[in-house]
Amino acid sequence: MEAFTTHRGILAPLDRANVDTDQIIPKQFLKSIARTGFGPSAFFDWRYVLNGDVNPDFELNAPRYEKRSLLVTRNNFGCGSSREHAVWALAQDGYKVIIAPYRGEGDDYIPGFADIFKNNCSKNGVVTIELSEAEVETIFKAVYGEEGLEATVDLENQKLTLHGESEVTFDFEYDPSVKNKLLKGLDDIEESLLYLDDIKEFETKHATWIHQ
């Protein structure tokens, strides 16, 4: 995996909550046995009209977002199917960072991203940033208010900066294990195989009947 340290690029908005992975990449594209080629199909049913033409009403199709590489959206992004194709599609369509708000606390907590999706992002060098709803609201306003608005993500220092008329910086939390992996571009399997002896030892003690 390619390491992620900092990234500066244009922000684009997708003002919907609960965007599911069926929307990010519809099933007809899951028939591929390759890991590449999914980019043009990201958000397919929204991006194109039925005859295959580009849908002018879909906000990400606006010319001002053509060169975007950061996406700001609403909560529970990437829910539903576990398909990693959703992350491949976004990454191959040029998205390096996705920003979504968490809401509430305790029993009312709603996350910015669904679990499996977030985890899949971490395996593909895509950074998922969760901010408060108020902060995300500020970002939406800034994106709508200024064409070509750029932002920088500094993962090491956990800072997101909007380069608008006046610069605004947000601090974000990041799971230290994921952060370290992204910063160094580590391969999970290689890392886990360092513990092969532990795995072998575990297997000698674990129930034997599972291996029938």
Binding site: S82, E84, I116, N120, K123, D175, D188, I189, S192, I199
Partner: peptide, 20 residues
């Protein structure tokens, strides 16, 4: 539980997963 394809590869190779 459900996993992504990178984790499928991880399980195939190691019979384990890294989990929180």
């Amino acid at each position: 539980f459900g996993i992504g394809t990178s984790e499928v590869e991880h399980v195939l190779a190691t019979q384990t997963l890294r989990q929180k």
